[in-house]
Write a protein that binds this DNA or RNA. Structure first.
Lengths: 164, 164
DNA sequence: CGGTATCCCCTAAGATACTG
DNA sequence: CAGTATCTTAGGGGATACCG
């Protein structure tokens, strides 16, 4: 309804605060959404973090990232390369050797990511507590509901026997 | 049934720089990974961004977030509530009214997220350029490979006719 | 070594319908 | 209005096999 008149694909202008929020995340043709998805990616973050230390070859990455498949590592690296976050250098030797490194832009992204990780580390205790509290509350409510149901049930039974 | 976070002793200490990287992302019983996943979530970010302005009711959120299903909004809100990022207030009126708001912790998260969004906005042009360059290069290489293949093919044909 | 191609499974998200 | 329950499907991701 309200967003019907916004046809220019790719353009992601921010004007009013309320409008801006709508734009930078709703439309997936918006760059922001795509980059966020890359960051959100299960493996991308880890690759970026590892490459921040030093450049690594394909197999080195594979060994360091426990549980990643060849396919996913290759995919992830190609995505990162395409976005200009990681550079790929082929050494025409035998056996072949390919080095991956963070580009300057990739490095700045890692800086930004760090602040996010820092946030999670600062708040992980609070979050764990919140979860525990929530689970306890939900559990309590469920039990209360069950008790109530049991009570209604017994009342119904009583009524039935009374009628008999 | 939802995913129960069974508390395996996922101690997530950081010692050496190299070790630390491995830990905070490889093991999914590690808190950081889970919180990152929440942040990365397609809808969570948008909900947080919208609630930062003011508290909203369920339907208000649904209307503002174009394309979200009832189910996903409910799920997202439950998760955020469980993590202590969003508060849920039920007004026992008729019709029922439920308000969602950012908790203080949720607000600080939004601050952190902002820096990420800022980064994407700063670099979206560079990324678009990198993608265009990559695609062009790949396209060029593919065409070159095809030309080469065609050439080899014609040479093979020539050799065949020479033998005849 | 450093990939790509193929198959296949399983989950997460969408659509739909129903309830307090 | 504010959800939950149920069904169904697309695609993310693993395993495997094969090329340069």
């Amino acid at each position: 309804m309200e967003d019907g008149t916004f046809a220019s694909p790719g353009y992601c202008g921010d004007t009013a605060a309320d409008e801006a929020v709508q734009q930078w995340d709703t439309r997936n043709d918006c760059e922001v959404r795509q980059i966020l998805d890359r960051i959100a990616d299960k493996w991308s973050l880890l690759v970026i973090a590892l490459l921040d230390q030093r450049s690594l070859r394909f197999t080195e990455l594979r060994r360091r990232i426990d549980g990643i498949s060849q396919r996913m590592l290759a995919r992830t690296l190609r995505h990162l390369e395409r976005d200009g976050l990681v550079s790929r250098t082929v050494h025409p030797t035998v056996p072949p050797r390919v080095d991956y490194a963070l580009t300057p832009m990739g490095a700045t992204l890692h800086e930004t990511i760090r602040s996010l990780v820092a946030w999670t580390e600062e708040h992980q205790n609070a979050i764990a507590a919140a979860r525990a509290a929530y689970d306890a509350r939900v559990q309590g409510e469920k039990e209360a509901a069950e008790r109530e149901a049991a009570e209604r049930d017994s009342i119904a039974r009583e009524a039935l026997t009374a009628l008999r």
